[in-house]
Amino acid sequence: MKRKPQTVTIETPEHIEIQFQIAGIGTRLLAYLVDRLFQLGCVLSLIFVFSAIVFAVRQTTAIVDFAEGLWHSLGQWLVALLILCYAVVTIGYFVLFEYFWAGSTPGKRSQHIRVIRKDGRTLTFFDSAVRNLLRFVDILGDVYPLGLVVMFVDIHNRRLGDLAAGTLVVLEQEAEQPELSETLDPSRASDPELRRLVGHMTAAEYQVVRKFLSRRDQLDEEYRRTVANTIVSRLSAAAGAQLPRASKPEAILEHVEILYRERTRIL
């Protein structure tokens, strides 16, 4: 399945242009939500494990006393300290993952995207730190209002952090190649009507056949037959080929696909 990427062309110092597919706002948003879920999961797991240990060693009272003591001695500063810890964990998560995973985080990896510098190089620690420190501004109130607007306005879907650090978020996923049959029924290979049909085929028609064959298993049975029938009848009409009615349209398309490839080999 494909995404609909935009592209950006990066020119290296050697004047070589390299095209990258820019990650869309939706994909980035999903990656962020996955990361937040991951963070939440990790924090809750840590709290659960810590509580379980405290409960197991019967030190609950001691911990409560310690927390109360801390509150009495630090007062409001404790709240500030907790906010700071939260910020360090949140930002540190992104900085460290992006630095050690070459611009990726678990969320980004799940969506097949990663951060690069705008000259195409891998992110440095400084770049990662700058883009993630500005995340605080982008995610005002933890709901990403400013980041969303800036990404929407910017043609390369960059948020403030990206603009400050000179980074881009790009897609890594390569287009999937459909699995197609490589064998051809020998009795079919010499069928003159089939050869005539293939002889009239254009590349655009071949692409339709190829797309159908690679996606037919996902189609509902009724529509699968209809689409196959339509393609075969249109191809036959264009070529004036008389294909036997008993033949299954899908089988014809499989042979057409292979024969077309054979024909381009001859070219």
């Binding site: 399945m1 494909k2 995404r3 609909k4 990427p5 935009q6 592209t7 950006v8 062309t9 095209q19 820019i22 990650a23 869309g24 706002i25 939706g26 994909t27 948003l29 999903l30 990656a31 969506q111 929407f152 043609i155 390369h156 797309k211 996606r215 996902q218």
Partner: peptide, 28 residues
Amino acid sequence: SRERETSAPESAPMEPLTIGGILDRTFQ
């Protein structure tokens, strides 16, 4: 190149998309 970037939403053909792809296209 710039034109390719800006004209992407209009020229994109219909085909099955991922959830991220649907959201991307929504914003485009």
